[in-house]
Design a protein around this nucleic acid. Structure first.
Length: 863
DNA sequence: AGGAATGAAAT
DNA sequence: ATTTCATTCCT
């Protein structure tokens, strides 16, 4: 048995992950292991971790008896396999890659990576520290979550024998090597949990996170299943579900109840929080009623649940936090929200739950075997083979509902049974951990689903409570169309306003910025409300359209609901969301909590991948991340994001001497604000700003680099470029990479693998030394660097050869040396705005100048 | 799939 | 010391 758990997963994973293993797979979320208290950003991360954990828990579901291994593992585990936490550099890359890409659209990832490496090298220790700390935190959290986790599979490789298999084996092992082995039962406990209640708690909570997502997923699945499986249920569902949110909740509730019937009353077991309890109670109540009968009953039950939910929501809304631990709760909520949004993950997550090993026994246990089994697993790809190898897997399969091979499973999902089961499990898991939160979340979720919630998530949890109302309002709108009693009468507008107001404040608080809410990232919040409203309207309209007109709420309801509910609903919602996001995003673009929104988007979009897959998984820059990830990202976002300029400067500076001072620090935007310029627009802004600064100051300096960088992208166009620029030989331009490297300074890139191209850039170590090959490059670059006189010296020494600086001055002497290494985005944005307004033209001119320079460089480079 | 970077962990 | 793997995505 034991082995089985893990074993199974592998296959599953294969199936599931199949194609997009990485992305979809749950990464380990910081949330998994959250610690309870810290307020610091880190804490947040932890929170996220908690959320994730749920996944693990989720696994616990039925399987416990059987060790469950097989079951949950199946899906979840496969995907879930915890991924090793990202290190500081990776975090950095993740956060900045988009920027790099924006600047250098043409650049491929490799190049981007190189640049990132350069930047990283340039980064001041202080900045790095943040990332490092974060990475550390994640790691710690991760470890907590998966005590036994090993990065490298190591030993097991034996499996390797078959070449490919090896990899698989590793993965598994990797995921959870040690702990679980104990036994299914033992595993459950998870060392950590026991040992550290709080921490554990967090772990437990994580479930919640998972729960949310799970819930969402479950809801979706449930719907699907229902439709498929039993038509009858459908009607009930439809009625109940009016709102997407509701529907999801209801579904969840149903599922949950169903699970409970099965006998899993785990819920309490995990330290459920007060909220959870409430939820549980509610759910339980419903379940009880339902329990006796099962599916059929479920309908009625659903109704009841729905009512309850509504009632509860209303009550809650008013009460807001009845739950006990406020702050915690909030956190939870937040997480949940994310989770909810994420939906996708949930599915995958469940499997991944394996991670949960810590928390959940069942799951964990299987993994334990991991050594072997794990090794076997390896990856999704090979899983099948692995499965074959190991017996356990076979077992798993048996247990697993899914009949077919892993791949099949995927297909099957749609099939009712397997899905249902999985859903149930998931639900259970959710129930255990997440439910409490769920309630609250639900509302939000609704909102989110409904429309725009997105922005909110980012916002603080607290907000959430308030936010609910707004959401409700939205809901109401929808409701109106759809149906609804009027209960919602409550006060839409008023509430919203309040909510809005509140939200910003909260944000501010979080941000600690305090002073200007709008300016800060959070600003999004403020804006968001409006957006939301708009979205609401849109939705309403949409609904209306769908129905034909608002008037017949009920009449429409059915069809509408149906439509919405079924995948379509999600889709529509998603679409709306996306639109909203985009719209807001675009409009707000710069400052507006781009980050948040973006993330939110990501959540939304990615979220449904499975169902909607198409929607856009990747479209958004955000890149499809999981919901959980989103949160993670939030935190992650909190990390300072530096503008390219900054780096350039830094590099320069560094070159000079490592940092003039930390002064740079100022640039950073402390709290979240920094957020990156989401889109190219921002880039432009930056450029503009930069140019501005340059003009103002007219000092020569790094700016050039920036320009160069910018120009790079254009370089492709280069057409324009060639024009002025005196710089005789600025070869470097060639590739932005080179530029970056050269400019940035020596970062040691390629140390490790020389591989093929290493030669390309070569490398300079931080010291400044350059390898011979590099020299050439350096030369090319040199000119640019020359820009900065001061640095130049240093560089020269280091590099060994700089040509004389020159052009920069001639060109423009713009950049002030001191210029802020990085401007806060908001600041930049502002400036940009100012500039635009005042002198849009000028900016252009500047840009042109820049361009001109670049071109020249390019030409040289070509030569 | 492979690969670019860095870091951390494991071997 | 060397390997592995994490992330991102383009080729």
């Amino acid at each position: 048995m034991k082995g089985g758990g893990r074993g199974k997963e592998p296959p599953v994973e294969v199936e599931v992950s199949g194609k997009r293993p990485k992305r979809k797979c749950l990464q380990w979320h910081p949330l998994l292991s959250k610690k309870a208290l810290d307020f610091s950003e880190e804490e947040e991360e932890e929170d996220e971790e908690e959320l994730e954990k749920p996944l693990l828990v989720r696994e616990s579901r039925g399987p416990e008896v059987a060790c469950g291994g097989p079951i949950e593992v199946e899906e979840d585990s496969s995907e879930q396999r915890a991924r090793r936490p990202m290190n500081a550099f990776l975090l950095f890359c993740k956060r900045h890659r988009s920027l790099v890409r924006q600047e250098h659209p043409r650049l491929d990832n490799r190049g981007a990576t190189k640049i990132l490496a350069d930047w990283w090298a340039v980064l001041e220790p202080k900045e790095k520290q943040k990332y490092t700390d974060m990475a550390k935190e994640y790691k710690d959290a991760f470890m907590k979550a998966n005590p036994g986790y090993k990065w490298c599979p190591t030993t097991n490789k034996p499996v390797k024998s078959p070449c490919h298999t090896v990899s698989n084996a590793r993965k598994k092992v990797w995921s959870f090597p040690s702990n679980s082995p104990k036994g299914c039962a033992t595993a459950k406990k998870v060392p950590k949990t026991d040992s550290t209640p709080q921490l554990n708690f967090a772990m437990a909570d994580p479930t919640k996170m998972g729960g949310l997502s799970m819930l969402l997923l479950a809801g979706e699945h449930a719907l699907t299943a229902r439709e498929i499986s039993s038509s009858s249920s459908k009607s009930g569902a439809t009625d109940v579900t009016k709102h997407p949110e509701n529907s999801s909740l209801f579904q969840l509730a149903e599922t949950w109840s169903g699970t409970s019937q099965q006998g899993k009353s785990d819920v309490p077991k995990i330290s459920v929080k007060a909220p959870l309890f409430q939820l549980a109670e509610i759910s339980s109540d419903s379940s009880q009623s339902t329990a006796p009968e099962g599916k059929q009953c479920s309908q009625s039950a659903l109704f009841q649940l729905a009512e309850m939910c509504l009632a509860s929501e209303a009550g809650k809304m008013e009460t807001q936090d009845d739950t006990c631990a406020p702050h915690i709760k909030t956190e939870t909520v937040v997480k949940e929200d994310t989770g909810g949004n994420i939906t996708d993950f949930p599915l995958s997550s469940p499997p991944s739950s394996s991670t949960s090993s810590s928390s959940t026994p069942t799951n964990a246990s299987p993994p334990l075997l991991s050594g072997q089994a794990a090794s076997v697993k390896k990856k999704k790809k090979k899983k099948q083979e692995a499965t074959a190898r190991e017996p356990p897997k076979a077992v798993d399969k048996d247990k697993i509902p899914r009949p077919g091979s892993p791949k099949k499973t995927l297909k099957k999902r749609p099939s009712s049974e397997s899905e249902l089961e999985s859903l149930l499990y998931t639900i259970e898991a959710v129930a255990k951990g997440a439910w409490g939160d769920t309630e609250e979340d639900i509302p939000k979720k609704k909102a989110s689903t409904a429309v725009v919630t997105i922005p909110r998530e980012p916002s603080s949890p607290k907000k959430r409570s308030k936010a609910k109302r707004p959401l409700k309002a939205k809901e109401e709108d929808e409701m109106e169309e759809d149906k609804e009693d009027g209960s919602r009468t409550e006060m839409p507008s008023t509430v919203e306003t309040a909510a809005n107001l509140a939200s910003p404040k909260k944000e501010a608080e979080e941000a600690s910025i305090g002073s200007t809410p709008g300016s800060t990232e959070k600003p999004t919040a403020p804006p968001s409300p409006p957006h939301k409203v708009e979205e609401k309207q849109r939705e309403a309209e949409a609904n209306a359209e769908g129905c034909g007109s608002r008037k017949s709420e009920r009449s429409c309801k059915g069809a509408l609901y149906k439509t919405l509910v079924s995948e379509g609903m999600l889709t529509s919602l998603r679409a709306n969301v996306d639109r909203g996001k985009r719209g807001s995003f675009r409009s707000g673009s710069d400052e507006g909590g781009w980050t948040d929104e973006t993330w939110a988007f990501s959540q939304m979009g990615p979220t449904n991948p499975k169902k909607l897959k198409k929607s856009k998984s990747k479209d958004e820059s955000a890149p499809g991340l999981g919901k959980l990830e989103e949160e993670f990202e939030k935190k992650f976002n909190s990390l300072p994001q530096y503008s390219p300029l900054t780096f350039d400067k830094k590099s320069t500076i560094v070159t000079k001497k490592k940092k003039t001072d930390v002064s740079t620090a100022p640039e950073e935007q402390p709290p979240k604000p920094a957020k990156g310029p989401s889109s190219s627009q921002k880039k432009t802004l930056f450029h503009k700003i930069v140019s501005k600064y340059k003009q103002k100051k007219e000092k020569p300096n790094t700016v050039d680099k920036d320009i160069a960088m910018h120009s790079d992208s254009p370089m492709s166009d280069s057409a324009a470029k060639a024009k002025q620029t005196p710089a005789p030989c600025a070869t470097t331009t060639l590739s932005p990479e080179a530029m970056g490297t050269s400019a940035s300074i020596p970062v040691g890139s390629q140390k490790r693998k020389a591989r093929k191209s290493k030669i390309t850039h070569l490398v300079r170590s931080a010291d400044g030394r350059v390898s011979p090959a590099e020299e050439d490059k350096v030369r090319d670059l040199t000119p640019e660097q020359d820009d900065k006189p001061l640095p130049r010296e240093t560089l020269c020494n280091e590099t060994g050869c700089y040509s004389a600086p020159k052009q920069e001055e001639a060109d423009r002497s713009s950049a002030p040396e001191v210029l802020p290494a990085f401007f806060s985005l908001s600041a930049l944005a502002e400036v940009a705005a100012m500039e635009n307004i005042h002198r849009g033209q000028r900016v252009i001119g500047d840009s042109q100048k820049e361009m001109a320079q670049t071109p020249v460089l390019i030409s040289c480079a070509d030569q």
